[in-house]
Design a protein around this nucleic acid. Structure first.
Length: 294
DNA sequence: CGTATTTGACCTGCGC
DNA sequence: GCGCAGGTCAAATACG
């Protein structure tokens, strides 16, 4: 596993989500947990995550330092490895998935572009040379970035946060466009890109960049499981993506309101309530989380 | 009417 | 220097 490896989850969505499959992540994915995490360190839950790792994968828990640190400092480097072994139901790991589909796409240059853009266009035009050196120094402060793959018919998956689409671009060698979203919360500069996998058009590749500096909006489209999860600091980004959690939560009777795109079929997953996975989930999600909302 | 989305233009870096 | 591709902006448009 290279240092550039990021978390890249892949699972059936929305109705065929399987906790069993989630628990049988390939070794390549497992080994990535130690180095990476999701981009929401503010809402991480190391203990629960460690428990899952130990119970499910038999892995030693990462240190809290690693857990709480930016998941993707290595994204400062240029990732060149491709997605390998990508299948619809298995996690595969790689560099940022956009790089996976488009190797080298975002290798440094786009970061500089972002920095320039964030400084303001007019200012950039008048002080390019000054900024050049400045940008070099700032290059290391690249926002953490993480990608994951989701099997979904919808491009933009709800994750509890509010996003505003600010652009869409055609992707070279791909019939599917890439959409750019920005967190609508003031002073939160988290961005995400959404695109479809070239290899498997049913797979949506979501790349998050940056960390939210605010709690998840609680009243987004009603009470959402993901929102509850985030606000309660239950979410462990490296073990579950937003959508994984949401789907799992739906399986356990949460989040029925809202998330209009989710075609959860609780009955098809009812066995999880009694199985070992449920116990595992209870380790991840505090018991009060599994209490039905009034 | 406020908010979100669409979409063409623009900017930047990189490779040739 | 030029063309290409990724990323962003912002006016126009759509929507609730």
């Amino acid at each position: 596993m290279s240092n550039e490896t990021k978390d890249l989850y892949n699972y059936q969505y929305p109705s065929s989500f399987s906790l069993y499959e989630m628990m049988n992540l390939p070794s390549s994915a497992q080994s990535s947990y130690g180095n990476n995490g999701f981009d929401h360190g503010l809402h991480s839950s190391p203990g629960a995550y460690d428990s899952l790792l130990q119970k499910t994968f038999g892995l030693s828990p990462p240190s809290s330092e690693v857990f709480n640190s930016s998941i993707d400092h290595e994204s400062n480097r240029c990732a060149t490895n491709d997605v390998t072994g990508e299948t619809p139901t298995r996690v595969s790991t790689s560099s940022s998935s956009s790089e996976a589909d488009h190797p080298g796409e975002d290798c440094g240059k786009s970061q500089r572009k972002r920095e320039l853009a964030e400084d303001g266009r007019e200012e950039n035009r008048s002080s390019k040379t000054v900024n050049k050196t400045k940008k070099k120094e700032e290059k290391k402060e690249r926002e953490p970035r993480v990608s994951f793959m989701t099997k979904s018919e919808v491009d933009h998956l709800e994750d509890g946060y509010r996003w505003r689409k600010y652009g869409q671009k055609a992707v070279k060698n791909s019939p599917y466009p890439r959409s750019y979203y920005r967190c609508t919360t003031q002073k939160c500069n988290v961005k995400k890109r959404v695109e479809r996998s070239l290899q498997d058009p049913t797979v949506v590749i979501t790349t998050y960049e940056g960390q939210h500096n605010h709690p998840i909006p609680t009243n987004l489209r009603g009470s959402s499981a993901a929102a509850a999860m985030y606000s309660a600091n239950f979410m462990n980004p490296r073990s579950l993506t937003h959508d994984m959690f949401r789907t799992a939560a739906l399986d356990y009777g949460y989040g029925q309101s809202g998330y209009g795109n989710v075609n959860a079929n609780p009955s098809s997953h009812q066995e999880y309530r009694q199985g070992s996975e449920y116990e595992l989930l209870k380790d991840i999600f505090p018991s009060n989380f599994f209490k039905q909302e009034p």
